[in-house]
């Protein structure tokens, strides 16, 4: 088992290197020129050329790459072209809202989706099952921002129950935090709920068809007990997997949700950076997102070996 863990950890290295190369190549080959954007509306060609050389953008591309990797290894993500602030500082500033939104979304989704999925599996083949499944497909299909705007319109502007935008930290303003996080959480949860519901239903269905459950049922154990004690317990592994895989979905959704609700998180940071061609921020953030994803999935894989020793890779 130790050797598996070591192998699994080592296997993330080449993936991370590939991500770094892809990210660098992608952004440095763009025709967009940040110097021009920085120089602003009235800049002359001379000023632009000067800015470009200040930023090192006139150096050969392989020199830029080597410099960048060197800094990266020292934990230095570079300096934002526009704000002159270290990318790591910018990320640190924006980390909390995204982290909080992800946490509330995962909790809310699991609380809603797992019971729904179990219920659908239990009632498999009936109209209840079909309706739940159609709703879960709808969750995949509905554009996140349309739902966001509908919620803002109804609960923010018409009923005035909740703030229309912004984020409050739970550490300084718990009530404000709850009020401001409700609509973004619902919005972002939709696609996640859909995903987890489907997986839960499928996993529980599979377990329900296994012999020992049939035995338990035949022995006259109460359905609910069978469902939760046996079925759900054994379905836990695939559900955990999907939560790991879903991190990528969550990040994509967070980009949109943060834009709709004006939440100062990492998603907004990366969108702004892309529109302004602020390379160091884009590179830094895509790397951070990807590495987070790689590490979470590595941890989940390793966790399996503890939960379910049958699994081997």
């Amino acid at each position: 088992m130790v050797s598996f863990i070591v192998r699994r950890v080592l296997s993330t290295l080449p993936v991370m290197i590939i991500v770094a190369i892809v990210v660098f190549a992608m952004l440095r080959l763009t025709p967009g020129d940040p110097a021009v954007v920085i120089a602003g509306d009235q800049a002359t060609a001379e000023q632009i050329a000067r800015i470009r050389s200040n930023l090192g953008l006139d150096l050969p591309i392989h020199v830029q790459f080597v410099t960048w990797i060197g800094q990266l290894l020292q934990g230095d993500l570079g300096i934002s072209i526009f704000t002159n602030m270290p990318v790591s500082t910018l990320i640190a500033q924006r980390l909390e809202p995204t982290l909080m939104l992800s946490l509330t979304t995962i909790c809310f989704s699991v609380l809603v989706a797992v019971p729904l999925g179990v219920w659908a599996a239990w009632r498999s083949g009936t109209w209840t099952d079909r309706v739940i499944m159609v709703f879960s497909v709808l969750g995949f299909s509905f554009p996140v921002f349309v739902l966001g705007y509908l919620l803002i319109y109804e609960f923010g502007l018409t009923l005035k129950w909740l703030p229309t935008q912004g984020y409050k930290s739970p550490f300084s303003d718990p009530v404000g935090f709850v009020r401001s996080i409700i609509m973004p959480t619902i919005t972002l949860s939709m696609i996640y709920i859909a995903l987890v519901t489907r997986i839960t239903r499928a996993s529980v269905l599979e377990v329900l068809s296994e012999d020992y459950i049939r035995t338990a049922r035949a022995k006259g154990q109460i359905e609910r007990k069978v469902l939760f004690r046996h079925a759900l317990k054994n379905a836990a592994v695939p559900i955990a997997t999907i939560i790991g895989i879903g991190i990528a979905l969550l990040i994509g959704g967070a980009v949109v949700t943060e834009t709709v609700f004006n939440i100062p998180g990492l998603g907004r940071l990366v969108v702004d950076a892309i529109l302004r061609r602020d390379y160091p921020i884009i590179q830094g953030l895509i790397l951070v997102f990807s590495f987070t994803y790689i590490i979470i999935n590595m941890l989940i894989d390793i966790a399996y070996t503890f939960f379910d020793p049958r699994i081997r890779y």
Partner: peptide
């Protein structure tokens, strides 16, 4: 497969935005 793992670990929407901003 390592390249595919690498691509998969970049959130799809970010990769797509990045590619669009690269190529116009």
């Amino acid at each position: 497969m390592r390249v595919m793992d690498g691509l998969m670990s970049i959130p799809g929407i970010l990769l797509a935005i990045g590619l669009v901003s690269v190529s116009g």
